[in-house]
Design a protein around this nucleic acid. Structure first.
Lengths: 407, 407
DNA sequence: GCTAACTTGTTCAAAGTTTGAACAAAACTC
DNA sequence: GAGTTTTGTTCAAACTTTGAACAAGTTAGC
């Protein structure tokens, strides 16, 4: 029940019906492959003739291809159709505070190559290094001619339309235009997006077939805490691309000071640094941004903490369960307000999900308005490895498969 | 950029283009009336012939009508088109804790008749009384033959699809089926919705032309606190119809106990009762649900409190400004997370908007992540009178104008 | 009072869809 | 090898938009 915007609408042309059905066919092949024309016709409840026309067009455009012939009990055997993912490449980039990740994937999001280097915080230098590495990785894998785009995930607020990083505190970037220089150097479409939003896209477009729900939120817990919101199959970006910054929702107005400058933010209770600070007994607000004090502690990570907890360190366990409790409380707030079909959580803390689940659920039950809300399925991010990179890849592939905008 | 749901999609038929363009025409007439066929053709960038066909169909269906002829500098004069709102009636109902409101409106949301009675909390009795009054009001205004539906706003969680009130604590209702008995008795389509969601629909569909944004939230502050979320011209209902219950977001985990049973909810800081409790120095959690102690105070309302504040009562002023501050803090959370284009606020407290705006804005600035967020336009509900009833009317009219579901 | 210019609204054929049926191709059963 | 079943294609009909021409109505200018 959408309202038509009377100042920005799309009139249906005589090709509109075809475009709509073409995208439906493409998506059905993607979801149900291998699948025959006749199967598509049955699922769509249209004549096989229409499917033939559309499929031939999609084959001609190189989007799908005919594979083996299938088996049937009786009658002519169907020819199976598949989405063409090989020989269509995407470069995915994940720029983080400490390191930058670079992955070459095919159109199905499968990893082909991966490299890593220390993040140079000066944008121009980082861009130069990225360009060099991207050229090399494309050359090495003979992918230069078939690379269809570059997707970049950023820990901060990004204007997805212009490709400008508006504010990324972790990188100390403000109004950095990444797209223009990269597009010029590489000659490829560049898509840039905020990391939690990218993670949500990865689940939606690259998650295992049949599992991706239409309404969900993706909560990332790492240096910061962010949320990617998907409603009705659409990523919510917000009017100024800020949507999803629930990491700074207050849990207590006199709680710990957050790195954002405010007080009592959810992030200040559950970020990796917050959990470590709780363990070591530090005051989060006194910490130099993003670092524990010098000494052996400065290299101590949340993964180390989880290892200690598993080894029987009671204080480590208690610090982690503190995070679990606040994770549940903040989650309850989001479930009450957005009521998604399911929740994905990503971040190192989820390697301890077996430990923390009961505490999270208990906190959820305390603050969720209804029992059904408290029982909302919580899933560990499908991509335990590099969810941000998968999301960056999805930035490039998603527009090919998206529904046409109409009305 | 919506993903097509491969398990629930709509194939384009040969009538789909027409349906899309028909709805666009209808909405353009609604927004820009009076408007001629030629104007429509220019706005839509299609031939006048297409518009003629569609307009004649819409006229035949009784959705629009030809009015006066317009003026031009030269050439044949255009005939103006209007949406037919007269002689198309809607019954809007607002059921609240103390009183129930019943309004007869035309299709433009204009009030034709209004009556009120004390709410009977027993559902069967309330339904009986409603049916009697609705029949009478239709008969009195000769509207029985042209009434197109009944819209009902409820302070609680409603399953919009089945018409069942899942949980309305204010009415002490659980799983009450309103639609079946009302539909049977009245023989009309019945639409039931949660009050803040209905208010959001009213702004979207019945607000002054040109003002209704495509992305906004509507925050209702009265007995409870709720939010109606509209993204991309679409009301967000959530997977279990709970979406928008941000009234129970925590501001402090050791804050005042809320009537919902939890602690430190936004609602427990800014609901009318919370503001009154702050003034009288009561502990909200000790209060019998929804009532101040007996005596003169039990009839004392938030409106009285505002009057006292305006008259110079410093304690009244301070209680209200307390609410203002918490209103701003909670709002900042929603702006960070949802990033709407603008915010509407409804409720008695907004009659004091001139007093509280600076405090709200200051709190907003403290917790909003960016300056632009802090400057998000805040508007008083367009319908200072009976916004819920307008929303109830919009429940009936909106489906007629909504975009067709496609892909 | 007449003509030219201009705008509105309608009519008609062409091009691109879906729709529905018939038909050829391929494979199995008896 | 005939009959049956399923797949995939072909062809005409119905319904769109598209683009042009045309009739109707109005003003300006002479």
């Amino acid at each position: 029940m959408r309202k038509i915007n009377p100042y920005d609408f799309r009139v249906a042309k005589r090709s509109t019906s075809r475009e709509i059905n073409r995208q439906i066919v493409l998506n059905l092949v993607r979801e149900h492959q291998p699948i025959s024309r006749a199967d598509l016709a049955r699922r769509m409840k249209v004549g096989r003739n229409v499917i033939s026309m559309i499929v031939n067009e999609l084959i001609a455009d190189g989007l799908i291809y005919e594979g083996a012939t299938g088996e049937t009990v009786r009658g002519r055997k169907p020819t199976f159709l598949h989405v063409r993912t090989q020989d269509r490449f995407v470069i995915a980039v994940d720029i983080r505070f400490s390191r930058t990740y670079l992955m070459l994937t095919d159109f199905g999001g499968r990893q082909i190559a991966l490299e890593t280097f220390e993040t140079v915080l000066l944008p121009d230098d980082l861009i130069a290094e990225l360009v060099e590495r991207m050229r090399r990785i494309l050359a090495t894998h003979n992918a230069a001619a078939n690379c269809e785009g570059i997707g970049i995930a950023i820990p901060g607020i990004v204007d997805h339309r212009t490709g400008v990083v508006l504010n990324a505190p972790a990188l100390e970037w403000r109004n950095v235009d990444l797209r223009t220089p990269l597009a010029k150097a590489m000659g490829l479409p560049i898509h840039i997006e905020n990391a939690p939003k990218a993670c949500a896209l990865a689940e939606m477009w690259l998650g295992a077939n049949g599992t991706a729900p239409n309404d969900f939120i993706f909560v990332t817990v790492s240096d910061g805490v962010g949320v990617g919101i998907v409603i009705n199959g659409e990523l919510i970006r917000g009017h100024d691309n800020v949507a999803g910054e629930f990491g700074h929702a207050p849990l207590s107005l006199d709680g710990p000071r957050c790195l954002c400058g405010s007080v009592g933010c959810w992030e200040a209770y559950i970020s990796n640094l917050a959990t470590l600070a709780r363990y070591f007994g530090y005051d989060l607000s006194r910490l130099r941004p993003k670092r524990l004090p010098r000494g052996e502690e400065s290299d101590f990570t949340i993964t180390d903490l989880i290892a200690r907890a598993r080894a029987g360190d009671e204080r480590a366990r208690s610090a982690i369960q503190g995070t679990a409790r606040y994770l549940g409380i903040g989650l309850a707030n989001l479930l009450n307000g957005l009521n998604p079909e399911c929740v994905y959580i990503g971040g190192e803390i989820m390697t301890a999900w077996d430990m923390i689940e009961p505490v999270v659920r208990k906190a959820l039950a305390e603050r969720a308005l209804t029992e059904r809300l408290a029982q909302t399925p919580i899933r560990i991010s499908t991509f335990s490895e590099y969810p941000r990179l998968r999301g960056a890849a999805a930035l490039v592939t998603a527009p090919i498969f998206a529904a046409p905008r109409v009305a």
